[in-house]
Amino acid sequence: MVGAQALLDGPTLDDSTVITRSLDQPELFAVLFDRHADEIFRYAARRLGGEIAEDVVAEVFLAAFRGRARYDRSRPDARPWLYGIATNVAARHRRAERRRTRIMARVPAERPGSFDDRSVERVTAEQLQPRLAGALAALSARERDLLLLVAWTDLSYEDVAQALQVPIGTVRSRLHRVRAKLRRALGGIDPLSMEPQA
């Protein structure tokens, strides 16, 4: 399906070039999928559980493909762009996420690997310590997006700004607010937990 030359070139090209070339050779976009699908899946699975994450990844790459003409070609790394799309796609699945954060400490954790990997039960709030899940529930959706991009991916603040389409100064000021909220939420449960983790 993918052209021979594209297969040959693809792996050596940066994301921006792959995306640009995919305007003429649409199949080349599969290179981007091969490169980043796992990472996007992991992020989505941590937030929404494995089963929904499967849908999210498929949707993210379809949306990315359809919107590829608008990609900012000055950016060689497409991951911030993909995380941004994933964040938007995940927003539509938030009803699922909501339940998880809401249940807070009620829910027991599931153990990865102890049963088949399609378990829909394996979800953020269940795996987070109850107190962290509770603190997460205290944030707005936008703050949660920001926090989890910063905490759970290796994106830089600048990357996160790009993903969320806000100026980097906005990322910094929002993070400041998020920290304050978390400090209150976590501190309300246990002031000692504020100490740096070993």
Binding site: G67, R70, N88, Q165
Partner: peptide
């Protein structure tokens, strides 16, 4: 229909 963010003006 289109969850794709544009990247222009992101920085």
């Amino acid at each position: 229909a289109d969850p794709t963010p544009t990247t222009s003006g992101a920085s």
